[in-house]
Design a protein around this nucleic acid. Structure first.
Lengths: 347, 347
DNA sequence: TTGTAAGCGTTATCAC
DNA sequence: GTGATAACGCTTACAA
């Protein structure tokens, strides 16, 4: 591939002049500029970003790390980030960790070697995280997304997870629900899940109700009815379920319906994230909406500001409760269906 | 940040020796190697990939271009690609185009400047595509995914879209359906949609039935009931609908149910892609499964092989029809609900 | 307005 | 085994 020097030669100018035709064209006499550009065209010259990056010590690449792409909440955020980044002339190096801390470390190290200009991370656990501690000592701007760390060491962008889940819980309480449960993915892997559970507890206590223990699912995005079964039948059966994310809620609804439950008549279901899909389903999913696109955009813009040297901020974006047909008042007379012998059986 | 030269100095060796401690450690005397690594540790040395890339003329970065992340089919494929790439020591530069051809061109140009080692593209339109023509003249290995170009200029990995949709159509025909419609997103933007429509037509004709015109939706991932309404009522109403992708099918099911239709009693719905989510819903979505993870993995591995100089292949991966409760035999007696005054009305 | 020349941090080719 | 030294392709003072 042709380089700047060959372009310069063909145009009969020095390498510096050829370079300027691209970086500061206004400095050149228009005739010179024309000759250079013409030469570049004839040689199919294409500036080498790698060389530029080495020389300028800036890659204009942002490293992005998310737990997974299986959950649309991340995909929707990435979509917004990619657009915002490209608009500012930056590219995204995107990676997934599967909530694995050792993978997080590995990937961050690789990104630092690649000399990314900044990092946007969604980690499993923002508090007491080795990777973040290490990054604190580095000079690379770094921003957390969705994570809401207790200590203020790393700037972050998220909603107020506790208040958000408290709001959702209060909504159910106001409808008359009393036996409200909450389910989460592998909870040890997610600081957000814990905050959301705290919000639930807080709201329950505010209504003088004892919070129930968190029901933990083996996977982040699939419910497992077997785990839930003890809470679905009998006089103490739950009339409403809060889920730490929408995928969990959606799969739960499907499973419940297959097990004979009617939603919301027999049981109400609330999600968290507000992914677009939820509103399309029937019944539509009631969910705490995180402004995913706004979060993604804010993340990129904040990080770019940090790269320019501005001081980092910790942003709390506001959440909203999206109403949906998956929630209704508890129906006292509604008889829970008999537990089948294998309620989670599937094709 | 410390560089190799400062490491070399601290270790009391030449720069070349310091470099070898990382690239070919076995060449060094173990004592020398130890001294270099110790020095590197003390200086927190981190190899500069950009310099390596410039010198070796290889970035170990793959450029990936997909239409959108809103559709989980792409997210699921990316997930697999990211894992496969990382395993081979490659990173992914991921971008989205929103089915916009000019954006495709822009992004590919930027990736070539970045000197990616290869490109994995899912374009809107694989036939008569300027970008692909241009890439054909470049020396960068390039691979299409999901696209199934008519001409064999660019290697590609996909299912046989025509046969796949024909299979789905035949399934409906075998169940007794006769008035089967097909809906798609903006069809001009997707070569796959056209092939799938051909498959539908082929299967219909094989049963001596006239294929119906393709029903085109304004968006790729949201159905619009208003457009469909003429086909839902009266004696000629459709008893089954094929969708070019699962998101379209899922949103359609929700809308139909809200409009009073029962699925599959009143109307059967079939999707395409087989995204994981579809199986979780109730009714579960019957869909043509594209092996998304296998496609992603095959894409990376094939591209890496091409980068090593092996000759490109055009792979057809096999599809499968996933049964689902969204499909049943047509019910002759089933009365279509009266059209509401505004069947698409939503909160 | 244009040219000269010194890097950016590696790897690779020789020597020794 | 180890060390000099020349690239890789570009940017950018500084000179002219």
């Amino acid at each position: 591939m042709a380089d700047l020097l060959s372009v310069a030669k063909l145009a009969g100018v020095s390498r510096a002049t050829a370079a300027r035709a691209f970086s500061q064209p206004e400095l050149l006499r228009s005739e010179t500029r024309r000759r250079v550009l013409e030469a570049a065209r004839r040689l199919a010259f294409r500036p080498n970003r790698v060389a530029q990056q080495l020389r300028t010590r800036s890659t204009r690449i942002l490293g992005v790390l998310v737990p997974s792409l299986d959950n649309p909440v991340f995909a929707e955020q990435l979509q917004a980030m990619e657009t915002a980044a490209r608009q500012a002339g930056y590219s995204l190096l995107i990676t997934t960790t599967g909530y694995d801390a050792s993978k997080e470390a590995e990937i961050v190290e690789e990104m630092l070697r690649q000399r990314v200009d900044g990092l946007i991370l969604t980690v499993a656990e923002a508090d007491s995280n080795d990777v973040l501690d290490k990054l604190g000592k580095e000079s690379v701007p770094c921003l957390l997304v969705y994570n809401q760390p207790a200590n203020a060491d790393t700037p972050s962008i998220s909603v107020d997870n506790r208040a958000a889940m408290a709001d959702a819980t209060t909504h159910l309480l106001d409808l008359g629900h009393r036996r409200i449960g909450m389910i989460a993915g592998p909870v040890l892997q997610s600081d957000r899940a814990r905050l959301r559970y705290e919000g639930y507890c807080q709201a329950m206590r505010a209504h003088r109700l004892p919070p129930l223990p968190l029901i933990e699912m083996p996977r982040h995005t699939h419910a497992d009815l077997a785990v839930l079964e003890p809470h679905l039948y009998g006089s103490e059966r739950l009339t409403a379920l809060l889920c730490t994310n929408d995928m969990l809620a959606i799969s739960l609804m499907g499973d419940l319906q297959r097990a004979g439950f009617s939603i919301p008549a027999d049981i109400s279901v609330v999600g968290f994230d507000g992914i677009a899909l939820g509103a399309l389903l029937n019944p539509s999913l009631c969910s705490v909406v995180q402004p995913r696109a706004a979060i993604g955009q804010a993340a990129v813009n904040t990080l770019l500001a940090m790269i320019k040297g501005e001081s980092p901020t910790r942003e709390r974006l506001s959440h909203a409760l999206r109403q949906g047909d998956s929630v209704g008042p508890p129906t006292p007379g509604s008889a829970a269906p008999f537990p089948s012998t294998s309620p989670t059986q599937r094709r």
